[in-house]
Amino acid sequence: MRTEHDWITTPLTLELLRGALDLERTEHGLLPHRLPARARAQNTDAQLAMAEAQPSGVRLAFRTAATAVELDTLRTKRDYIGAPPRPDGLYDLLVDGRPAGQAATTGGNVLTIDMATWNAELTPGPVGTVRFTGLPEGDKDVEIWLPHNETTELVALRTDAPVEPLRDRGRRVWLHHGSSISQGSDAASPTAIWPAIAASLGGVELINLGMGGSMMLDPFTARTMRDTPADLISVKIGINIVNGDVMRLRAFGPAVHGFLDTIREGHPDTPLLVVSSVHCPIHEDTPGPSAPDLGEIGKGRLRFAAMGDPAEKAAGKLTLGVIREELSRIVRLRAADDPNLHYLDGLDLYGASDAAELPLPDNLHPDAATHRRIGERFGTLAFGPGGPFTEQG
């Protein structure tokens, strides 16, 4: 029987994490961030602050002979008033790159959100523990992927054998930025979000800057991407611009150019893929904003509705159809002088026929099966033969 004296506690550092760009020391431990402090200081939006602190794509990665691992964390789980309860965030265990376990924690904070007013109240809770036992004997690569949809403070890491940071496996680094779909909203688990599926198929290391409600072409995010080492870069643009109703066509084109210009300052020749939105029926031809359908919430269901008027397109309001046309035009224009810039139509990842077969349950976000489909298709179109991310040589 193992006692507390058999455990080795290893200090948690950025060297043991992949997919995080910063660590903040908190009252309880360390909070991984997907935006650095300088970018966070320029942000005033609570939605982005919450999303970037949810560790989508972030994983503990180490080499060890341990057969048992314990991780103390403090989660912050969201609870939307009137909507069905959200499932617990999951931790996925990989051993030598293969799935080897899955677990959830207990306790933690609860952030209760009223979607009618967007007021939020935080109820504190205790630290919980995730345990994985029965790992294979001998040295091995261990990864623990943190929940993609819960803020997760790391408190302590215990093992029954020493650990060391996972050595560089010589894989290319893929830096991706997108919306809540890229963050993994409604995916089954952290390794089942579509970017993680695509990264596995492509044999690359993922840095996921998919952030719910927050792909707004923010300059501080562009500067973060400029300054982050990467071998491959993609930006998935569209749905948040529309459902946030944050700009018109006049501002959108220059904003895209500026975002790409900033990335190119740090990555002048890196393969850069611009991806438009997947099919979303409520916003294909109807501008934003979108908002929770309060009638559906009253029935215990969460669904979103488009609040704009299709006639407003004439005044420059944006729809997904308009954005796809503009992104295609911008990439064609720039590609004349930038042969490493590419465009992928999001409808090739999930189009109208897919929506008929696998509709978006809340009218905005894909379910687990659709995440897999999108990830597999991205893997083929981007990493497969002839794709912009195909490994040369």
Rank of each mutant, 00 (worst) to 15 (best):
R329K: 12
R329L: 13
R329T: 15
I330W: 05
I330Q: 13
I330V: 15
I330H: 04
I330N: 06
I330C: 10
V331L: 07
V331Y: 05
V331S: 07
V331K: 03
V331G: 08
R332F: 11
L333H: 15
L333F: 15
R334I: 00
R334L: 09
R334N: 03
A335M: 04
A335C: 09
A335I: 01
A336S: 14
D337S: 15
D337Y: 08
D337Q: 14
D338I: 00
D338T: 00
P339S: 02
P339L: 00
N340Q: 15
N340R: 15
N340I: 00
L341E: 08
L341V: 12
L341G: 00
H342C: 08
H342Q: 07
H342W: 11
H342R: 12
H342A: 15
H342V: 04
Y343F: 15
Y343A: 11
L344Y: 04
L344F: 02
D345F: 11
G346W: 01
G346V: 07
G346P: 08
G346M: 06
L347P: 02
L347Q: 13
L347F: 14
D348A: 10
D348M: 12
L349H: 04
L349M: 09
Y350W: 10
Y350S: 01
G351W: 12
G351R: 08
A352S: 09
A352Y: 12
S353N: 10
S353E: 14
S353G: 07
D354A: 09
D354K: 07
D354S: 13
A355D: 11
A356Y: 08
A356E: 11
A356V: 13
A356D: 10
A356L: 14
E357N: 10
E357G: 03
L358P: 06
L358R: 15
P359N: 13
P359M: 14
L360M: 04
L360I: 05
L360D: 01
L360N: 01
P361C: 04
D362V: 00
D362C: 05
D362L: 02
N363D: 13
N363K: 11
L364R: 04
L364E: 01
L364I: 14
L364V: 14
H365E: 04
H365T: 08
H365F: 01
H365W: 07
P366Y: 06
P366R: 00
P366D: 05
D367I: 11
D367F: 09
D367L: 13
A369N: 06
A369Q: 12
T370G: 06
T370E: 03
T370A: 14
T370V: 13
H371A: 09
R372Y: 06
R373S: 12
R373L: 15
I374F: 03
I374C: 02
I374G: 01
G375Y: 02
G375F: 02
G375L: 03
E376K: 13
E376N: 07
E376I: 08
R377C: 05
R377M: 06
R377I: 08
R377Q: 06
R377G: 04
R377W: 06
F378A: 13
F378D: 05
F378Y: 12
G379H: 01
T380H: 11
T380I: 15
